[in-house]
């Protein structure tokens, strides 16, 4: 399958004084069409810098970034690249432009000069896809955090991008909002086969992806399926990541010499594994 996103030996930094904002060094990464990739890392590991580079808001100092085959530093094709990559950011409030939900969703297509009747169709479809159609006439500032993020996702969806990049979209939400947003992301993947890059520091969110890339010090520290990655409990802890409690429990029991399987992530898996180990005797 073709790569929607391609980073070739990319180096970027905000300058020596701002190293804690994250930097990237000689990073090469490609994301295939239709895949769901989670990028994990602690703050300042460079994971959010990837989002800035993909969006074209920042250009690499060395190397090249391609979105759907378009070099993001190609000024002539800037709009085309931006149209193909939908960005959702962390702060729900700071990405909603209009005073009415549906008008905000229309903002992207309006900028692209789409016909009004087609905008109407796309807005309705996008709002339905994120389950916010009944709020189309509402003012965004009356919505909950999770609802605002869903509106932001709809706004991106209405541009019909080939890929969606979400930069810590749940970091500022309560558990309910977090659940709403993750459900929406999974639905997009199922309904549209959308390529998704989810930047997060929540491991249970990353567990839903087909591929997990762990960032540290501007480089890829690990890259693999969730199971491969999450079986390396000690390494993840070293990288400043959160290990789900069931995974941690299994790891501690294994260290005490009890024979248990690798890559346990959820409560149910943990219960099953421990019960099985217990009943074997």
């Amino acid at each position: 399958m073709a790569a929607v996103i391609e980073l070739e030996h990319v180096t970027f930094s905000y300058g020596e004084e701002a190293e804690d904002q994250g930097f990237i060094e000689d990073l090469s990464l490609s994301v295939e069409e239709g895949s769901f990739v989670a990028v994990l890392g602690h703050n300042g590991s460079g994971k959010s810098t990837i989002a800035k580079l993909l969006s074209g808001l920042k250009l690499p100092q060395k190397g090249r970034v391609f979105v759907c085959g378009i070099d993001t530093s190609d000024e002539e094709r800037e709009l085309e690249a931006k149209k193909n990559i939908g960005m959702v950011f962390q702060t729900p409030d700071n990405q909603i432009v209009a005073t009415i939900v549906e008008e905000d969703v229309a903002f992207g297509p309006e900028n692209l000069g789409v016909e009004p009747s087609e905008i109407r169709r796309r807005v309705d479809e996008a709002l339905a896809a994120v389950g916010m159609e009944e709020y189309k006439d509402h003012a965004p500032n009356k919505l909950s955090g999770g609802q605002k993020q869903r509106v932001a996702i709809a706004g991106v969806l209405a541009m019909q991008p080939r890929c969606m990049v979400l930069d810590e979209p749940t970091a500022m939400l309560d558990p309910r909002g977090r659940g709403e947003v993750m459900k929406t992301i999974l639905r997009l993947r199922e309904q549209y086969g959308m390529t998704i890059v989810l930047i997060t520091h929540y491991m249970n969110e990353a567990a839903m992806a087909d591929r997990v890339v762990v960032m540290d010090d501007g480089r890829v520290a690990a890259d693999g399926t969730p199971r491969e990655i999450f079986s390396q409990v000690q390494k993840l802890k070293q990288l400043g990541l959160d290990v789900p409690q069931p995974t941690e429990l299994i790891d501690q029991l294994k260290q005490a010499g009890i024979d248990l399987p690798d890559g346990i992530l959820t409560v149910d898996e943990c219960v099953q594994a421990v019960t099985r180990a217990f009943m074997e005797e």
């Binding site: 969006s55 808001l57 931006k82 960005m87 432009v97 903002f107 992207g108 991106v156």
Partner: peptide
């Protein structure tokens, strides 16, 4: 930034 990403020009 968000407006630029949504192709505002």
């Amino acid at each position: 930034d968000a407006m630029e990403c949504r192709c505002y020009h």
